[in-house]
Design a binder for these strands. Structure first.
Length: 296
DNA sequence: TCAACAAGGATGCTAGTATC
DNA sequence: GATACTAGCATCCTTGTTGA
């Protein structure tokens, strides 16, 4: 799967110079990093992207105050005219904040729900982007949406965010690292559609600590209205890229990725076990628990 | 329909090279 | 001389095909 940039929109999507945080849009669409990258092996300059980030980053499209019975909401949520770009943000090596950020997983919460009031300031982002070496990220950095009638992994499915007005009355949502879980579905509610952007072949060339910046854009609308195509942005948690000798191996493919693959998403590789576990090693059980949180 | 086989791709390991 | 990085190789896994 390569970068799927609609022809004629290259000038809108050119990653250089890096996209800086845009003024808040009126869009109800929000990005949510459904599957956080944990680690990667540096693929070097000539490795042609054969060491993808593990697990593969999966970004889900959410909609503020989504109404499941609204045809218009469902149509917008599953529209295929959106694209998401991915940029690599190096994290300062001595930054204690990067570790704290990883622990609190604040990226999703602040970008998707509290982005107007909190989160990294512009100066912080400027600092991050200023350190970004050109071309350190390879693979498919632009992704088209994949829509499913139902979430492939309902157990981890986030609910759609509420508007700021609603957040005031439900203040806990603003501090959650991820959106609150969807309430149990009754017989009268139809299955909510879900739209994903699967970055299945992202590779990082050099070792270090990074974050991924995902930017939701609607190039078609931007062409018509001549406005900013950026609808929302979200950052992943900090993850580490290891050199070949330090890399501790690939993780088991998460359930979400498996579900998406079953639904027909191309480029997702199934990995049931690492080589350690395949050879009877004991290291695997530790690493899987660390990553999957002891999934079944 | 199930099982076995083969081919291609993915991944971990290691040797070689460059830099400090 | 030591360390880090890069590139190549070997092995393993997944998937598709064919035969019983």
């Amino acid at each position: 799967m390569t970068a799927s940039v609609p022809s004629g929109f290259g000038h809108l999507l050119n990653p250089a110079p890096p996209l800086l945080p845009q003024p808040p849009t009126r869009s109800r669409l929000r990005l949510f990093v459904r599957e956080q990258p944990q680690a990667a092996r540096a693929c070097g300059s000539g490795d042609r992207c054969r060491r993808p980030v593990d697990p593969i980053p999966i970004v889900q499209l959410l909609m503020t105050d989504f109404n499941p019975i609204s045809e218009e909401d469902r149509r917008q949520l599953t529209s295929n005219q959106y694209i998401v770009s991915c940029q690599l943000l190096p994290v300062a090596e001595d930054s204690e904040r990067s570790r704290k950020g990883r622990a609190s997983a604040r990226s999703n919460a602040e970008n998707s729900f509290g982005r107007y009031g909190r989160g990294l300031g512009n100066s912080d982002v400027d600092q991050l982007i200023a350190r970004q070496p050109g071309g350190n990220l390879s693979g498919g950095t632009y992704m088209s949406p994949f829509s499913a009638d139902q979430d492939p992994d309902p157990s981890t499915a986030p609910s759609h965010p509420q508007s700021m007005t609603n957040l005031v009355t439900n203040s806990t949502a603003a501090t959650l690292p991820r959106p609150p879980r969807r309430p149990p579905c009754t017989n009268i509610c139809a299955p909510n559609p879900a739209t994903f952007f699967v970055f299945s072949d992202l590779c990082v060339r050099t070792a270090g600590e990074y974050q991924l910046l995902f930017t939701l854009m609607n190039p078609f609308e931007a062409m018509q209205s001549k406005s900013s195509p950026i609808l929302d942005e979200v950052r992943s948690e900090t993850f580490e890229v290891f050199s070949a000798k330090d890399f501790r191996g690939m993780q088991r493919t998460p359930e979400l990725a498996r579900g998406l693959r079953r639904l027909g998403v191309q480029g997702i590789k199934l990995r049931d076990k690492t080589r350690e576990s395949a050879n009877g090693g004991a290291a695997q059980s530790v690493s899987e628990e660390d990553v999957d949180g002891g999934e079944d």
